[in-house]
């Protein structure tokens, strides 16, 4: 057992093992299950849900430097529980079953910088507080008086960033009032987003500091069993169109692909679409880290007149972490223009 293997196993419930992301479909034991009746409450639900097995705070940002150079930024905090805990009755100290993992990345047109952090719960090294909002692991943090205005910071051995996020629109509940179905068999999660952040701040890259501005998207999701047993991974798209509208769509790859999408009007009004309404077709595949990855896609949501091609800023946005995946900025063209983020998980080498 090397450290990597152990970590793989530790985060198995969170991100699945080497044979694919299918591990997310394993039995959830005694954890609380997502319930369509649950009404999300804020700010409480910005905090952790220790009775669920997995959870994440996931920020992606499309940024621009002073010379117009496009950049991508990612800040993610994962929580994974080895055993369920009731909220308010969490174990303190090393006995805590909560494990935390952070991923941070900066993507430039020709480079990708990645860092990973891991932490045990119960000792103060990582955690999330709902109000005033603070999510942290080591020196990485996302904090502010509330979720509408937060400071975001992270650092790796060769990069760092510190940016401010300001919400210009409301929180958006994904799926049905925040209950997002992931398979025909009924696997689901609680899922809401803040797709209307404007960003300003600074990246620190090997060539020096770069002031940046742009837009960011926060995803909050928690569940105990995300994937059906036959599902191996997903392709996830978040698009910010120039006209102010937003769109989220995903494909869960299994014996039968499962898709879902949410159209978000410029005022934040969401329209969820069930399986099949959203279509994603890989156009061009490239070898990345030994995998055949589609880095150009045709995305369609005919009900909203969407027929766009998205193209990765760079193929290099490979997240070479304990459980590797691809996550990077994309440009959007076709019926709508804009920018966005693409995440691809579960591709076998």
């Amino acid at each position: 057992m090397n450290a990597k293997a152990l970590l793989l196993c530790i985060f198995l419930p969170l991100q699945a093992a080497a044979q694919g992301f299918a591990g997310l479909g394993t039995t959830p034991q005694d954890f609380t299950q997502p319930n369509p009746e649950t009404v999300l409450r804020f700010p409480q639900d910005h905090g952790a849900h220790p009775d669920f097995r997995i959870e994440w705070w996931y920020v992606t940002a499309n940024l621009t430097g002073p010379d117009g150079t496009p950049y991508g930024l990612q800040w993610t905090l994962f929580r994974s529980a080895l055993a369920p805990e009731r909220k308010g009755q969490e174990h303190q100290g090393w006995q805590s079953p909560q494990l935390w993992m952070g991923h941070a990345a900066v993507t430039t047109p020709n480079a990708h910088y990645v860092a990973e952090r891991r932490a045990r719960g119960g000792i103060g090294q990582a955690g999330v507080r709902a109000a005033p909002f603070e999510a942290w692991i080591d020196d990485w943090q996302m904090r502010g008086p509330d979720l509408d205005r937060v400071q975001l910071a992270a650092s790796g051995t060769d990069f760092a960033y510190q940016v401010t996020l300001q919400a210009t629109g409301p929180l958006v509940l994904q799926g049905t009032k925040g209950y997002s179905v992931k398979s025909a068999a009924g696997q689901a999660s609680h899922y809401y987003s803040q797709p209307f952040y404007t960003v300003s701040g600074q990246l620190t890259l090997p060539e020096g500091p770069v002031p940046v501005t742009g837009t960011a998207w926060l995803d909050r999701e928690w569940s105990s069993q995300l994937l059906a047993a036959d599902q191996s991974g997903w392709d996830w798209f978040s698009l910010s169109f120039d006209d102010g509208a937003r769109m989220m769509g995903f494909v869960l790859r299994g014996t039968q692909d499962f898709t879902a999408a949410t159209w978000i009007a410029p005022d934040g009004t969401p329209t969820p679409f069930p399986d099949g309404a959203f279509m994603a077709t890989p156009l061009d595949r490239q070898q990345v880290a030994g995998r055949d990855l589609p880095l150009t896609w045709r995305l369609r949501l005919p009900a909203k007149g969407v027929d766009v091609t998205i193209k990765a800023l760079t193929p290099k946005a490979w997240m070479d972490v304990s459980v590797p995946y691809w996550e990077g900025p994309v440009t959007v063209s076709g019926s709508h223009a804009g920018v966005g983020y693409l995440e691809m998980t579960g591709y076998a080498p």
Binding site: M1, N2, A3, K4, L6, L7, I10, W94, L99, R118, A119, R120
Partner: peptide
């Protein structure tokens, strides 16, 4: 602590 231990220590 296996989560933070440098590689190869386990």
């Amino acid at each position: 602590d296996p989560l933070t231990a440098p590689m190869g220590l386990l």
